[in-house]
């Protein structure tokens, strides 16, 4: 039996009319408010999870940066070993020495470090003697201070190292005097005598402490090669210092300063 189309249309219309509902403004506001709140919660949760996911990456990055810094620092420290005052890496070298002094445990181990520092300063003095003679004596003074510090902590190798450095000290002072005698002469007398005491002392068992009266002739790093200021005479023509004959005669085992500024520093090293 087929239902007439009219009946079906009426039934459908009635179905639509009776079941049709409208959302009230209050319900709409409540529903959309819930959606907004949930969206805000989701954003917070998403940010947290992103941060949590990023944390291991940050840790990895920090570890990499740390490793790179350590590697770079080690490389810079190694490269700075041969640097001279005024070089780009020279502060790194000095900083490294400070750190070595700080981490030297036990305290007596500082003596060895101080001797290494003294050797470094003497090498530097020799290295800058030709180009920057005015820096020679301050460097030797630092070397002397380092040796004194080593002696203060009872380092047994002090005498041996002082002996080893004596020739280099003498050579450095000689070169500096050749190139610019005024740079050496301009230094205060007391400071100069201290440095030269280091260079002229012959007794290798002790080193002169900074500020101590000079013990020239009694032993020191540069006794064999470097005459003191009292031993120098000035060339009347050039103004360059000329060592006295008596002290020059004693300077046989070390490079003696050239009698005239025209003499090559390298010849004195031979």
């Amino acid at each position: 039996m087929t239902q007439p189309d009219d009946d079906i249309e009426q039934a459908v219309a009635m179905l639509r009319r009776t079941l049709q509902q409208r959302v009230t403004p209050e319900v709409r506001a409540r529903h959309l408010g819930s959606v907004q709140r949930r969206a805000a919660q989701m954003r917070v949760a998403q940010r947290r999870s992103q941060r949590a996911a990023r944390r291991p990456r940050v840790a990895l990055l920090a570890a990499l940066v740390g490793a790179m810094l350590i590697g770079t620092s080690s490389a810079a420290l190694a490269a700075s070993d041969s640097s001279l005052p005024g070089d780009l890496l020279y502060p790194v070298k000095r900083g490294g020495e400070e750190v070595r002094l700080i981490v030297a445990i036990p305290f007596s181990a500082q003596g060895g470090v101080q001797l290494e520092i003294a050797a470094a300063r003497v090498h530097e003095a020799l290295g800058v003697a030709q180009d920057r003679p005015e820096e020679v004596l301050p460097l030797i003074a630092e070397a002397q201070a380092a040796i004194a510090a080593a002696q203060a902590v009872g380092e047994p190798q002090v005498a041996q190292v002082a002996e080893q450095l004596r020739d280099e000290v003498g050579a450095a002072i000689a070169i500096a005097e050749d190139v610019a005698p005024e740079a050496v002469a301009a230094l205060p007398a007391s400071g100069l005598s201290d440095e030269l005491a280091l260079a002229t002392e012959t007794d290798t068992t002790t080193a002169t402490l900074p500020g101590e009266p000079s013990r020239a002739g009694a032993g020191g790093l540069g006794a064999v090669g470097s005459p003191g200021p009292d031993d120098l005479e000035t060339d009347p023509i050039t103004g360059a210092p000329i060592p006295r004959s008596g002290s020059a005669e004693t300077s046989t085992a070390s490079p003696s300063p050239s009698p005239s500024p025209s003499a090559s520093p390298t010849s004195s090293e031979d």
């Binding site: 087929t2 009946d7 039934a11």
Partner: peptide, 9 residues
């Protein structure tokens, strides 16, 4: 639709 129309009629 047919059943609904019948029932409502």
């Amino acid at each position: 639709e047919r059943s609904l129309a019948r029932l409502l009629a």
